[in-house]
Design a protein around this nucleic acid. Structure first.
Lengths: 212, 212
DNA sequence: TAGATTGTTAATCGATTAACAATC
DNA sequence: TAGATTGTTAATCGATTAACAATC
C-alpha cells in the first residue's frame, strides 16, 4: 500500500450512473432499509447487476459479504466521491426559459449544488428575483463572484453569447462551467467544462425510432 | 451487394456526435462553402479528426478524395440517418418550468421535431397557449393523439407521475418517449425511451472538479 | 448445510486509434 | 510531383461480461 495506490480512475460511464443509484438508495434509506444487493438495485434501475457491483466497488462502497451493500455507507461513499456531501456555491448566467427552469429546480440541493445568484443583461430581469434568486447585471459578474466566493457557473445563454461570457468567467477564476449552450467552449487547461447537448439525446431517440 | 448488406449498426456515441457536426456544417453551408475536411471539422468541434472521418463514413456521407466531405451531401446524409429530413409531430406532457422552456425552444424544427400540443392537469394552464402551443387536459391525451396523429412524446412531468402517464401513452400506441423525469420508465418492448438525466452531467462535472 | 451474495481475476467485445495505401 | 486527404485494415485500449472463489 504505497502512497501511489490511488484508486485507478473511475470511468465516465460509472460516474454518470452514480446519481441513479443514489436516488434509489435515498428512497430505500428513507424506508429504514439498511442493505441493498446489486441484484435488487439492478431490478430497480435496469442496469446489469454486475455493472452495479463493479461501480459501487469502484467508489469504495461498504458491503457485507453475502448480504449486499450497506445503504447508508454507500450513499456516503457516492456523495463523497462526487463532492456532494457539501454544497458548492454556484451561479447561473442567462435567465431565459431554461435558466429560469433550472433556478426553479429544487433538486440540486441533493446534488451538491446551490445556485445563489443569477445574471442577465435584460433590464426587465436585472434587479428582480427568480424563484428566490437575485438577478444581477452581467457587468457585476466579477464583483459578485468574488464577494460570494462562487465556484461553479451554469451557462444558459444563447449560443452566440456563450464564448464571450466564458472568457469573462475564466478571467474571474471560475474552474467549472456547466454549459447548456450548443457551443463547444474554448477554455484554458485546468477549467472543467461540462457540455450538455440536448440534441444528442434527441438524435439517439430518432435513430432508434428510425432503426425499427 | 445482397439485400443483407445493411450498414453494420452505428454506435450510440457516433449518433450523439452527429448533431454537433450538423451545426458546424449548417453554418459553413450558409457561407457557401462546399467541402469540409475531417481536419477542419476537428478543429471546430474538438473531436479527433479520425473519429469524424469514421463517423461520417458510417452515415454514408459523400466525399471527394483528397478534398474532404461534400457539405451539402453530408448534411443530407446525417439528416436522413436521423430522420430529421421531415418533421415528426410531437407533444409535450407537463408544462412546468422545464416543459415551458422546451416549448419555447425554436431549435427543434432543425432537429426533426415539431411540438404541436401540450398537456397538463392544472386548471390554470389547460385551455391556454404556451409559446403558441395549445395546452390540453391530460384526460384528452388519447383523442388529441389520434386526431393529430402524434408520434413522439416529450415527458416533463414530476417523477411521481411519469410512470402513470407512460402507461397511458403506451396504451395510446406511442412508440417514442423522450423522458426528462428522473425515473426509469417501464415500457413494453418496441417502445423507444430516451432518458435524459440532468444529474449525470452534473455528476461528471463535480467528479472532474474534485479530481483536480 | 445450502445458497445468495460479494470479491477478484480472466475473457470478450467494441470503440478508438494507428498505420498505410489510394487518390487527385 | 508533392502533399493533403479519404479509404481501409490492423492494433490498441478499456469497458463490459463471464467465471469462479470466498464468505457468512
Amino acid at each position: 500500500m504505497s502512497l501511489f495506490s490511488r484508486k485507478k480512475s473511475i470511468s465516465v460511464q460509472t460516474i454518470r450512473r452514480l446519481p441513479q443509484y443514489l436516488r434509489v438508495l435515498y428512497d430505500w434509506h428513507g424506508y429504514g432499509r439498511e442493505l441493498a444487493s446489486s441484484t435488487e438495485l439492478a431490478e430497480e434501475t435496469q442496469v446489469p447487476a454486475i455493472v452495479i457491483k463493479k461501480d459501487l466497488q469502484a467508489v469504495g462502497a461498504p458491503s457485507k459479504m453475502r448480504a449486499g451493500f450497506k445503504i447508508r455507507g454507500t450513499i456516503t461513499a457516492i456523495e463523497n466521491f462526487l463532492g456532494w456531501d457539501n454544497l458548492n456555491k454556484a451561479f447561473l448566467v442567462g435567465t431565459g426559459h431554461l435558466g429560469a427552469a433550472l433556478l426553479g429546480f429544487s433538486g440540486f440541493k441533493n446534488h451538491g449544488l446551490e445556485i445563489v445568484a443569477a445574471f442577465d443583461t435584460h433590464p426587465e430581469r436585472v434587479g428582480h428575483e427568480i424563484h428566490g434568486v437575485q438577478v444581477y447585471h452581467t457587468a457585476q459578474l466579477k464583483s459578485v463572484i468574488e464577494e460570494k466566493k462562487l465556484k461553479i457557473a451554469v451557462l444558459t445563454v444563447p449560443g452566440a453569447a456563450a464564448q464571450g461570457i466564458t472568457d469573462t468567467l475564466v478571467a474571474c477564476g471560475i474552474k467549472a462551467i456547466w454549459n447548456f449552450a450548443p457551443v463547444k467552449l474554448a477554455v484554458p487547461k485546468g477549467v472543467a467544462v461540462q457540455q450538455e447537448d440536448i440534441a444528442s439525446g434527441l438524435a439517439e431517440l430518432c435513430a432508434r425510432l428510425k432503426a425499427r
